[in-house]
């Protein structure tokens, strides 16, 4: 008997719940992560989840295009946050990629020397 009353009560409460919620977009009930809590509004949160899916696959495609081994791609995506994935998506080409500055500098020096040579400041390559 008590359980029947309880059930009716819960159903009534549920109806109230739904009425209060109205037609608001459904949000999954779950634990909220700290990063999310630090910068959350509803719209941002929903967009972020959509973006996670899109930017994840976009970054994956780009990594493959830039020569990353397929076996490494998932591990690399796994340590990136949603925000970082969004930063990376579409920008892998433009972001500074720290590489072999030293050898490149030798090349640059060479170019400068040739220019100096061509405009006649130096005479390293041409014997008078």
């Amino acid at each position: 008997m008590i359980t029947v009353v309880l059930k009716k009560l819960v159903v009534a409460l549920m109806i109230c719940n739904i009425l209060v919620l109205g037609l608001a977009p459904v949000v999954e009930a779950r634990l909220i992560g700290t990063h999310e809590a630090l910068q959350m509004t509803q719209r941002e949160e929903q967009l972020a989840r959509i973006n996670r899916i899109f930017s994840g696959s976009e970054v994956q495609e780009q990594m493959l295009a830039f020569g990353v081994e397929p076996k490494d791609v998932q591990d690399r995506l796994a340590v990136l946050t949603d925000e970082e994935l969004r930063q990376l998506a579409g920008r892998l080409q433009d972001m500074p990629a720290g590489g072999d500055g030293v050898l490149a500098v030798v090349g640059l020096v060479f170019v400068v020397l040739i220019i100096l040579e061509l405009v006649g400041v130096t005479n390293i390559f041409t014997k008078l």
């Binding site: 076996k71 970082e84 990376l88």
Partner: peptide
């Protein structure tokens, strides 16, 4: 190398250096 190097850009991105440390 497999975690942060981008072969065709001949370099590594700051974001990936940060992320790889988490691993």
């Amino acid at each position: 190398a497999g975690k942060i190097f981008l072969p065709d850009r001949r370099g590594s991105l700051q974001v990936e250096l940060v992320a790889a440390s988490r691993g």
